[in-house]
């Protein structure tokens, strides 16, 4: 017995040592790399922001989505497309909450390419709620020529951008329901132009090189609801808007999920009670009929 324990300890010790070696070795090259000043993919972690749509009962803030939409329309949309979002979506439940009339009026302000008509011509007509947001550029090549790079489509940006949370945070994230890496990242980028000498330097961009120069400035968007007309506010609002654009069914999802969880919890309790009842029958109970 004692020998067995000793060999057990020996094996465990050997494994732990090997592991420790492996793990310490795994940290070393990264340190060495930053020491050499190689920061190709270096990216400071964006600080976490408070979002109304986080957690169990998360909901979008309608006023914030409307402000964020204003920022998108007046600033972002000059370069970025939003091709998966239709005007009608702005009136969908769980969204910015525009009225149908507002959406109709808004859509009519856009010129949409349509056709061919009976004469075989491609023509432009005022937008309808069922149309999707048009892009300012006819194609990617035109955008690249004008801007030097193609600005990414914004429909899914809030889900298509993230950052490494690292060990052990990634284990906690599903429990605390942290799903806002995207908006946190977007907010950080918009506030990350901290190098006055280089307009294409961004604190939070992986490698710090960003093609887009600082897009927002204080006072650039004229809010009507009295919210501060400052970059931080714009950044927060547009990040929230982009989260909605990427995940328009978030409210419905969380609401339905809550019902499902309640149902399953009660169901589990009933099952547990039934299981205990059945397993306490005499034939299942070994202690009762011990000879």
């Amino acid at each position: 017995m004692r020998q067995e324990n000793a060999s057990r300890r020996g094996i465990g010790l050997a494994f732990v040592t090997a592991l420790a070696l492996a793990l310490t070795a795994s940290g070393r090259p990264m340190l060495a790399e930053t020491g050499q000043g190689s920061n190709l993919f270096e990216q400071p972690k964006p600080p976490r922001q408070e979002w109304t749509f986080n957690g169990f009962f998360g909901r979008y803030d309608q006023a914030q989505l409307q402000r964020g939409f204003q920022v998108y329309r007046e600033v972002c949309s000059n370069c970025h497309s939003l091709k998966l979002v239709a005007f009608r979506n702005l009136a969908d439940p769980g969204g910015p909450g525009f009225s149908e009339a507002q959406v109709k009026a808004l859509a009519a302000k856009y010129q949409i390419k349509d056709g061919p008509n009976d004469a075989g011509d491609i023509f432009e007509r005022p937008g309808r709620p069922s149309d999707y947001f048009p892009w300012n550029f006819p194609n990617e090549q035109a955008a690249r020529t004008a801007l030097g790079a193609v600005p990414p489509d914004m429909s899914l940006l809030a889900k298509a951008r993230s950052y490494e949370r690292g060990f052990p945070l990634f284990l906690i994230d599903p429990i605390i329901q942290y799903q806002e890496q995207g908006p946190d990242y977007i907010y950080a980028i918009l506030n990350g132009y901290t190098n006055d000498k280089d307009p294409n330097w961004n604190e939070y961009m992986p490698g710090h090189k960003i093609a887009m120069p600082m897009p927002l400035s204080d006072g650039a968007v004229d809010y009507e609801d009295g919210s501060p007309k400052a970059v931080q506010q714009y950044a927060k609002d547009v990040a929230a808007f982009l989260m909605w654009a990427a995940e328009p069914k978030l409210e419905e999802r969380k609401r339905l999920g809550f019902g499902v969880l309640i149902f399953l919890s009660i169901y589990a309790l009933l099952f547990f009670a039934a299981k205990n009842k059945i397993w306490s029958r005499p034939e299942a109970h070994v202690d009762l009929d011990t000879q």
């Binding site: 994230d173 599903p174 799903q179 999920g257 969880l261 399953l264 919890s265 589990a268 099952f271 547990f272």
Partner: peptide
């Protein structure tokens, strides 16, 4: 009944993933 109870507990986890952290 034992499998059923375990399945429902498993479904609670699944629900959590699908409805609250679907992109995790």
């Amino acid at each position: 009944v034992k499998d059923g109870f375990a399945l429902v507990c498993f479904l609670v986890l699944y629900t959590w993933l699908v409805f609250y952290v679907p992109s995790y």
